[in-house]
Design a protein around this nucleic acid. Structure first.
Lengths: 215, 215
DNA sequence: GTCTATAGAGGGATAGAC
DNA sequence: GTCTATCCCTCTATAGAC
């Protein structure tokens, strides 16, 4: 969040040319993160190598490691980056209006189809992270807990307003919604644009909830 | 499918004891496949190593490779094994009764929760296989096509009988159903038994279709 | 901060003796 | 068929010169 360029970035122009196109530490880190996101999304954490990440970012792996310390630290930074991107599109989860929370998922899906890399990253890493010793295991467990809780509250809000269709509890609705979201992303990666990601999620939500007309 | 023991299996008891507990080629292959399934399920194809598989099966990696030739060939055999296991529980997909096809998914889910290894294998490998160069990429693309087509036919059957609830097309219903199935499996692996896999799928199906009372 | 070089471990696959 | 030994590669991370 700090826009200051670090002191160490005040290198002469000659040196800058020798070092590559990065004019400051932030830009360098950002370039590495971009490359890492791409590689982890394509090959997973286990399958993606630092050498490939470094090469995609146009630098040596030693230089990359100097800035991030270790591969798992790089992964953590990538997940952080992803969270920032997602939050920029999907703020709610503690909003008052449950319908806004739920329909926010459709907006998020529209954003997702515009950035396949983020979808790939999520699908690949969340599956890898089911393994207990995966460095992102705790992250994904926590994240799902957060989303299940938030959506359960939203569906409870609908139930209070009498717009949750009978036959499903708020918790089940929340779990099913996350499942549809993740499952459709996987399907979309395997089957391409014969899958309508936002449309599928919206249809799912409308089977669960009767939304007030305001659209 | 051939139950013959290969000639080479006719080893004396003394030799058998030196070689390990496997009395025939089929049993040996089967032991390897069991270990491979376990390892690939836990660590993925990329993350799982032949040395570990061999060690879990109580043999050297050279011996393993003699019987399967390569790592990707081993993967193919594991996927075949999985298909056989699944087909033993879920035969339909070309049955006449669409309700039977759909409710078969609930039965399948009940089976799945009894064998976490198979669920892990599916979740892990299907995500890895979104990568184009993954050795199981074609397998999963094909498999999903098969399931989407089959379920689309089933939901079309419901539509003809007037029991597909309005607002969703058969194709969308099929895609959503597969998504719920896969997504719930992922959620179940991350969150354990707070997720009711069969119940979640059945609830999803009942939101889509009005089943005739016969249960 | 960045480079080259390398340590040290582990990967898949093969060779040759038995 | 199975073993031991080994090849050759890639991996993460570190060391030391600059």
């Amino acid at each position: 969040m700090n826009a200051n360029t670090t002191p160490s970035a005040a290198a002469g122009t000659a040196e800058r040319r020798r070092r590559g196109p990065y004019t400051g530490t932030e830009e360098l880190r950002s370039a590495i993160l971009e490359a890492a996101l791409k590689v982890f999304a394509r090959d997973g954490y286990r399958g993606g190598s630092l050498k490939v990440v470094a090469s995609e970012a146009g630098m040596s792996d030693a230089r990359l490691l100097y800035h991030f310390g270790s591969k798992s630290a790089l992964l953590a930074a990538v997940l952080e980056l992803r969270d920032r991107r997602t939050e920029a599109v999907y703020t709610p989860m503690d909003a008052d209006d449950p319908y806004m929370i739920l329909l926010g998922l459709v907006k998020l899906a529209r954003y997702n189809v515009s950035t396949p890399g983020l979808v790939r990253l999520h699908v690949t890493l969340s599956a890898e992270a089911t393994s207990f010793q995966h460095p992102a295991h705790a992250y994904f467990v926590q994240r799902y807990e957060y989303y299940v809780d938030g959506l359960t509250r939203a569906f409870s809000g609908c139930a209070e307003r009498g717009t949750l269709r009978p036959g499903t509890t708020p918790v089940q609705a929340a779990q099913a919604t996350i499942a549809v979201q993740d499952g459709l992303q996987l399907l979309w990666l395997l089957h391409g644009d014969s899958i309508d990601l936002p449309g599928g999620i919206e249809a799912h939500l409308r089977r669960l909830v009767e939304f007030p007309e305001s659209d």
